[in-house]
């Protein structure tokens, strides 16, 4: 016999939750089951005694003190008392309106500014990492020095173009310097190949000729 099922029905009956159909079914079972009759009796005692736990209360004079303590705590929590509440609520309403308005204006600006800073920081970091990783530490001359050489080169170029006498002297000294070096090194293949893009190209051809002659001195004699 499934007594567990009927004991659950007993519990529902005590709570007034058993349908008429189940009441009849339970009664039929109880008539033939002493175990469940005993269970019902025990539960009826528990129910009856539980009601005796009943109500408990503090004496009436205790409650005003309880309420006073609670009220003080509520005010400490930021609650508003009496007239203060009426005024406070009006101000609160205004403050809330302006706060809402500020939120609407400030929030997108703050978000955009923060986003921009984050994006720039990310791009700079990534760029630095890529350059640093792929190229390593630049071993070339610092940029300022490079610009300085380029400036000197342009100045020289300008000076040679402006003054033929200086240009001629420069070419002569250059010829002497190159020929001297080449003879000293004794290398047969030491042919200087000037870049055609260099300035004062008019003397380069002469120089090349001189070089070739110096490599084969016998031929020239």
């Amino acid at each position: 016999m499934n007594c567990e099922k009927y004991q659950k029905m007993i519990s529902d009956r005590l709570d007034g939750r058993l349908s008429r159909r189940k009441e009849k079914k339970l009664d039929r079972h109880l008539a033939g089951c002493p175990l469940c009759r005993d269970y019902l009796e025990a539960q009826e005692i528990i129910q009856r005694e539980a009601f005796k736990i009943g109500e408990i209360d503090y004496p009436p004079e205790w409650w005003p003190q309880f309420e006073q303590n609670l009220k003080e705590k509520l005010i400490l929590e930021g609650g508003l008392d009496g007239l203060q509440a009426v005024e406070g609520n009006k101000n609160k309403g205004n403050k809330n309106d302006s706060k809402k308005a500020n939120r609407l204006v400030l929030r997108p600006v703050a978000v955009r500014a923060l986003s921009l800073v984050l994006v720039v920081a990310t791009v700079v970091t990534i760029a630095f990492l890529i350059i640093y990783k792929e190229k390593g530490r630049p071993e070339e001359l610092p940029l300022a020095m490079m610009l300085s050489y380029e400036e000197s080169y342009l100045n020289l170029n300008q000076m040679l173009a402006d003054d033929e006498a200086i240009a001629s002297e420069f070419v002569n000294s250059l010829e002497e310097s190159i020929i001297g070096d080449t003879i000293q090194s004794g290398s047969e293949n030491a042919i200087i190949d000037f870049d055609n893009n260099l300035p004062a190209n008019d003397f380069k051809i002469e120089l090349n000729k001189l070089q070739k002659e110096n490599h084969n001195p016998e031929e020239g004699v």
């Binding site: 109500e55 609670l70 509520l74 508003l80 009496g82 609160k92």
Partner: peptide, 21 residues
């Protein structure tokens, strides 16, 4: 809801005994 303590205390008086029980 607007923070009026006195009004909230009226609600408290209505239910404090039940909550205590």
């Amino acid at each position: 809801r607007l923070g009026d303590v006195e009004v909230f205390m009226r609600l408290t008086r209505e239910y404090e005994h039940q909550i205590f029980q």
